[in-house]
Amino acid sequence: MSSEPLVKLTDVNFTYDRRPVLQGINMEIPRGKVVAIMGLSGCGKTTTLRLIGGQLKATSGEVKVNGQVVNDLDNDGLYALRRRMGMLFQFGALFTDMSVYDNVAFQMREHTDLPNELIHDLVMMKLHAVGLRGAQKLMPSELSGGMARRVALARAIALDPLLILYDEPFAGLDPISLSVVGKLIRTLNDALGISSVVVTHDIQESLKIVDYVYFVSEGKIVAQGTADEIKDSAEPYVHQFIWGEADGPVSFHYPARSFGEQIYKEAARAR
């Protein structure tokens, strides 16, 4: 059981509106590891995450989580599976009409009949884990971006999930919050014995904390390996990505016909 990866994607294709978003994705997330999915904006990383969470269904291929095929689950089965997953959304997605405390307590109140005192203790534990026990009475609008992200993390681990999905956890954070969140992802993963999938394009921060990296470009996996392998990769795409070069395999120019031809044609039309 434990040798089998927690999440396994086999030949997954996903088509949206006749536009292929993912093509032949094969991916494994082993138990207890932090795996990153990297790539440019709009390359299909978030789609992969949503396929694992069952918010989208693969057009073909198989998405298996904890031994269950996600595409075949009915609504009840999917909801049962999701209770064992936590997800951190890009900007936290805290419920804006509830306090920090109520946000973290939300799932416990919805899914369990625990008495209020026990819920209180659990919420305090989760908030302590992210260092925000003192912020329990604040409303989401009173939190900074980094704090909101940490509260959302506390909420994601509320029911002790097997797997946490992170959708761009580093987006829009200052350098200190960034490393705090990065460290939390790693420590929570190891302390709670869960597995994590991190979708990101923040290469420097994520290479410090992840075990394995998949590079996705235009709906395909173009490179994969451990953090060290990726750093030394000779693959031009990966190289461009890591060093943030403006031009390379990913062209600076949006596809267009040649500049000279266009000027000539437009000049001809103007006449």
Binding site: Q55, R83, G86, A93, F95, E110, R155
Partner: peptide, 14 residues
């Protein structure tokens, strides 16, 4: 727009 509905769905709450 702020993905609160998605978050709820992912928390197995309809």
């Amino acid at each position: 727009a702020t993905e609160q509905l998605s978050a709820m769905e992912m928390m197995a709450v309809d």
